[in-house]
Amino acid sequence: MSAKTKFLLIFLLPSLIFLGIFTYYPIFISVKYSLTRYNMLSPKPVFIGIQNYIKLFKNPVFWQVLKNNIIYGLGVIPTTMLLALFFAILINETKRFKALFELGLFYPLLIPMTAAAMIWVFMYDPDLGIIDKFLGLFGIPNIGWLGDARYSLLALIIMAIWKNVGYFMLIYLAGLQNIPDYLYEEATIEGAGWLKKHLYVTWPLIGPTNIFVFIISIIQSFKVFTQVYLMTEGGPGYSSNVLIYYTYEHAFKFWNIGMASALTTIMILFLLLLVLIIFGVFEKRITYSVG
C-alpha cells in the first residue's frame, strides 16, 4: 500500500465509520425489522415477510397521513417560494435599512423550532391567542386553529411559511446579484413597468435558484416533526399527522417496532427515489460554494 493510499484511508476513515454506524447500519436494521412481527405482544422479532407493508397499505390512516404530507408540501412550498422571491426583490431595491430587514426575515429561522412552536400555540389559542383576537376585530368568530380538524394542518402550514421565508429570501437575494443590471436598464428603456420588468427579466433568470429552493423545500417538507409533536400531536384525529410523526408514534407510543420499521423503510426508499430523480435531472446545475 502506498503512503498516499494509507493517508487517504486515515483521512476518510472517521467519516466512513460514523456513516456506517449511524446511517448504513440503521437502514439495514430498519429493513430487517420491517419484515418481522416485533411489538409489545411479540417482544422478540418474528419473521413474517411483507405482512407489515400489506397491513400498512390496507390502512386508510396511512394514506391519510401520506396525503397530509403532500397537502403540507403543496401548501408550504409555492407560497414560501413566491413570498421569498417577492421579498428578495423588494430588499434588493431598497437602499436604506437593508441589514435590518434582512435580520428581521432571518430571526424566525434562528429560533429553535421548539420555541417557535410554543409561541405559535400561544398565538393560535382560541381564547388567549392574538390571531383569533385580531380576526375578531373584523367580526370573524374564533377559529380555534389547532383544536379543529379542518384547520390544524393549515395552522402548521402558515407557521412553516413564517419560519422558512427568511432562508429562501436570502438564497434568492444571492441569486438576484447574478442578474446583470443592464437587462433591467434595457427593460426600463423599452417601457416596461415594475411588474413586467420582473416578469420578463427576473423570473426567467432566477430559474436555477428556483430549482435549488424547490429541491430543498420538498425535502424539508418531509422532515416536519417538531411542530407536529408540540402543537397538535397529529390531531385532532389524524388531521395533522405526517409520516415522520406517524412513524415516531409507532415506535415510541405504540411500541410496534415492526410497523415503525416498515414506515421508515418506505420513507427511505421514497426519499432515495426523490433525491435520485432530482440529482439525475438537475445535477449539472447545482454547485456548492461559500463566499
Binding site: 422532515k223 415510541f252 415503525a260
Partner: peptide, 24 residues
C-alpha cells in the same frame, strides 16, 4: 461516489433513523 452518497445522506431526515439508533 463518496461525495454524492454523502450529499444524498444529508437529505435524509435524522428522524428516519431514530428507532435503530435508539435501540443501539
Amino acid at each position: 461516489l463518496f461525495l454524492n452518497s454523502l450529499i444524498l445522506l444529508g437529505f435524509f431526515p435524522a428522524a428516519t433513523m431514530i428507532f435503530p439508533i435508539y435501540k443501539m
